[in-house]
Nucleic acid binder design. Sequence first.
DNA 1: TCCTGTGAACTCATTCACAGCC
DNA 2: GGCTGTGAATGAGTTCACAGGA
Lengths: 230, 230
Amino acid sequence: MTQSRPRIVPEATVARLAVYLRVLAGLADGGRSHVSSGELAAAAGVNPAGLRKDLSYLGPCGVRGVGYSVAGLQERLSAALGVERSRACVLVGMGRLGAALADYAGFASRGFEFVGLLDADPARVGDRVSGCTVRPVEELESVVAGTQASIGVITTPAEVAQSVCDRLVAAGVRSILNFAPVALSVPAGVDVRKVDLSVELQVLAFLDQQRDGGPPPVVVPVPAGAGGAR
Amino acid sequence: MTQSRPRIVPEATVARLAVYLRVLAGLADGGRSHVSSGELAAAAGVNPAGLRKDLSYLGPCGVRGVGYSVAGLQERLSAALGVERSRACVLVGMGRLGAALADYAGFASRGFEFVGLLDADPARVGDRVSGCTVRPVEELESVVAGTQASIGVITTPAEVAQSVCDRLVAAGVRSILNFAPVALSVPAGVDVRKVDLSVELQVLAFLDQQRDGGPPPVVVPVPAGAGGAR
DNA sequence: TCCTGTGAACTCATTCACAGCC
DNA sequence: GGCTGTGAATGAGTTCACAGGA
């Protein structure tokens, strides 16, 4: 441990660092050894200056006039994001979404390993998904304790999500990814991130409607006298 | 109708409006007729003042000193979000994630209907998921044209996501929800929202690591000489 | 010259605090 | 008194523009 980072990294930046890391993996596969902020930014879908600022939170990473070393930057980002250490995750709720996540290649390849799959439905207990056997939710505490899992993923119905969350926290999990459509309340020191799939669609629908029904390019064509609300 | 909305609604607000609408549905089921901003905000996991500001973009919605009518607010939000009109969606990529989404109850109940499910793998073509038959991806254009779908969901591998996106746009889709881990480029006038599952976990892992390894409450205990890299 | 690194400006979003109405 | 609606203040995040080193 040379030294810890004095700078605090904004959460929005952390999310993008993960994206850069993935893009870099693709570049490395393609045999590239160096890349500029402009190119990397284009591939990640962000502004070049923003990318440079993001990287600057980790201290100088590149070479002026040249760009970034692909391998060097990969290493730097991996260290910053903690990808090097692999993480044990438990997933509660083995419906279709839970099964899809447990099987998602994007997790395993980034150091996330599902060491516990739990479900309340006896019909699903015993299924094997992605090399792991589904166990009854009653065993939640012992699975967390036995595997030292630090991340919990909740894909249960909304009604039971809070109680599952409480049990995960009590068992020692301090990071939770919640797919259930409820706001979970947790004690300080526990992080929750929520993914709300139907909200994403709803936002798209709104933007869509706004395009069609809203004021097209310019503002409203008020015909005559002002003020009058027609 | 009376007049268009002069106010523009921030996107962050739109996302929360969708959450409020869901919470209201729960309250209505519970027989509640009125609710205060404080209570609604707590259930949605936001700040009460923020909730009031969000609602204020739609114009006055509540009664001072009393609160909001549950039914009235539901109606207002439904209209604003365009929930009343049902939306036709096509989904490309019927892997586990695609199948989970096609079957997700949260979509159907909010007016999103999957009218086309497409996959490039002949082995999956013909499967029935959630009352819809999987068709070959070659039929993308005809399915979009025939169903007037306005929303496209991409759950393909990253390598083909851009080409699928291009075809969706060419066929007339102007709203896209992308689960593939790539930045899609689209012409102006088309909206893309990206959901990146592995990034979510990565952010959690970062916060987790920051808690454990980072400066606990106060700043760093630098041992000796500064600067020393390695 | 090229491209990185970063202060400063700016835009967007959240929070506060209170006026206004019931 | 209670609670909504909203301008003002604060904060976070993004973009700009340029200084600084290869």
